[in-house]
Amino acid sequence: MARFMELGAAVSAHLRQGDTVAFEGFTHLIPHAAAHEVIRQGIGDLTLIRMTPDLVYDQMIGMGLVRRMIFSYAGNPGVGLLRRFRDAVENGWPRPIEIEEHSHAAMANAWEAGAAGLPMAVFRGYKGAGLAGVNPNIRHVTCPFTGEELAAVPALRPDVSFIHAQKADRAGNVLIEGIVGVQKEAVLAARRAAIVTVEEIVDDLGAHPNACVLPRWTIAAIAVVPGGAHPSYAHGYYGRDNAAYIAWDAIAGDREAFRAWMEEHVLGQGPQVFAERVRELRT
């Protein structure tokens, strides 16, 4: 049952060293504040899951907290490459990283299988694709009805999933609007806990009957962090800080500049700074 907590307390109560953890969001509603809190608490040796690891995973990798990453597109959207991720893969800095790489279709299907309590996902994919030759978790099954060969990948079941959402009501039911990505699946697939940061708490979600609402009993903890998705965006609240994504390329391109940036903007800060960061971006 959802408990309203401070973000720091929610993270320390549920996430452990060595966990498999997802911070999901498909360009939209990326839980930056929650990941920054994990970085501050120094919880490491993590296996990270995300379809589109971007800046915040680059930061966690650069801080040496990541042992392994399961993903399908590791880029800075619209800008280019992830330079901390590259440094870890190409040079083992600050530590080597294991990767399990998939396509989006595979990851999306694997999230759905995780939410559905199935051991694996089956889909028509990976035909002729090189990943099938380098990732032993890409296998094939034969349809018992038609004989068609289909791709199979293991379901995604993280210990803990973090998402950011627009709002919760006072009971702890959570509404997500706009590009909803795989967040519902990530919450339902979590084995131990799903933790949600929200823009605000309201009396009434005002949700239409088919809206993406996560009932309060699917969530372990809710923390109110206005602006907590910055520099990604929260539909209806604030826009994407494209300039921050563009600026990240130079910051992440240099180990010293990266460390200095993390000291100033993450390690020496708290969740309260996010509200100020989106002040000029509010819609």
């Binding site: 590791a74 590259r86 396509s103 694709a129």
Partner: peptide, 25 residues
């Protein structure tokens, strides 16, 4: 995906995203 060998790439690119199945489906 990569320039060079997959397991020891000279340049690690972002990867395929949706492209492998967009290309086949």
């Amino acid at each position: 995906t990569v320039v060079g060998d997959y397991h020891a790439p000279r340049t690690r690119l972002p990867g395929g995203g949706g492209a492998p199945e967009i290309a086949s489906l």
